[in-house]
């Protein structure tokens, strides 16, 4: 048991460390990046990794390391913005539908069934296709797709908590609905939401990178991992490093989220499986 516990803690520790390092690298990018990530230098195209360019250069002679470091800022911050927006929309809807039920609940559940019937990525591509490629439209599209997952999760958690004795007591004590939701339900469901969010942030990063890879998300010259991968596809035989490093960056970040999320999931029985 002890060995198992240690192993689990190691993966958690690894996940948190990796996550922290990546976020820290992003925050310190202006000081850590050896070059300007936007500086084009056509005479330095597709250089292999070297002392001056530790990760080599891309098709426009830009430093790949610098672009990856600045890419953390773009990719991860967009992911947090999307997460925040999704929660802002989902939290009130999830709380109200779960707490009160009734017609509103039915309406939102059918709406979510409709949203969740389509695979995330396909629906996101369709929405961006309608709205047009770009930074803002990508955020809108991902929020539209992801909010339903959060509503379903929050509603489920609220339904579960609603049956608890302490909540019945709270109702009998004359607390208002608003106060019950704020004081008694929200603290109970906060932890599972946090765990789900941690897991989901990795997924959101994959969606962002996927859309940018398809040319539907972040537009050049903004350093973003998906855009970097997209640019690298034409050079993967000639200069594989152009593709490897942004790929590793995405893998590392998503892995860190998975390691943290998985560990919490094992401890917390309230977190439902991905819907």
């Amino acid at each position: 048991m002890r060995t198992l516990f240690q192993k689990k803690n190691t993966s958690l520790l690894l996940g948190i460390s990796l996550f922290a390092v990546i976020v820290l690298l992003g925050l310190l990018a202006p000081w850590l990046a050896p070059h300007n990530p936007l500086q084009v230098n056509l005479s330095n195209r597709l250089l292999s990794p070297s002392g001056e360019y530790p990760f080599g250069t891309d098709h426009l002679g830009r430093c790949i390391l610098s672009r990856i470091l600045y890419g953390i800022r773009t990719t991860v911050s967009i992911a947090f913005v999307i997460l925040g927006l999704s929660l802002c929309i989902s939290l009130p809807i999830g709380l109200l539908t779960g707490y009160f039920g009734g017609r509103t609940d039915h309406f939102f559940m059918r709406l979510m069934d409709g949203t969740l019937a389509f695979p995330d990525f396909v629906l996101t591509i369709a929405i961006v296709g309608i709205l047009g490629p770009g930074f803002t439209n990508m955020i809108i599209a991902i929020v539209i797709v992801r909010w339903a997952n959060y509503v379903r999760l929050i509603r489920g958690l609220v339904l579960k908590v609603s049956k608890e004795d302490f909540l019945i007591t709270a109702r009998m004590s004359g607390n208002s609905h608003m106060r019950i939701m704020r004081r008694y339900i929200l603290p109970q469901i906060a932890a599972p939401i946090a765990v789900f969010s941690t897991l989901d942030i990795g997924k959101i990063v994959l969606l962002i990178a996927g859309l940018s890879f398809l040319g539907l998300g972040v537009q050049p010259p903004t350093p973003e991992w998906g855009v970097m991968l997209h640019d690298a596809t034409r050079y993967f035989q000639l200069a594989p490093h152009v593709m490897i490093f942004p790929g590793l960056a995405i893998v590392s970040f998503v892995l860190s989220c998975q390691l943290i999320g998985d560990r919490f999931k094992e401890q917390n029985v309230h977190v439902p499986k991905e819907v």
Binding site: L38, Q39, V40, L42, H59, L60, P133, G215, Q219, P220, P221, R234
Partner: peptide, 25 residues
């Protein structure tokens, strides 16, 4: 594909001159 690379080169050159270019694919 070479046109998109050229577009990025021109975008960068103009940025150095103080002009913003938004590329739309």
């Amino acid at each position: 594909p070479e046109l998109s690379v050229m577009a990025e080169v021109i975008q960068n050159q103009l940025l150095n001159e103080g002009i913003t270019v938004k590329i739309r694919k």
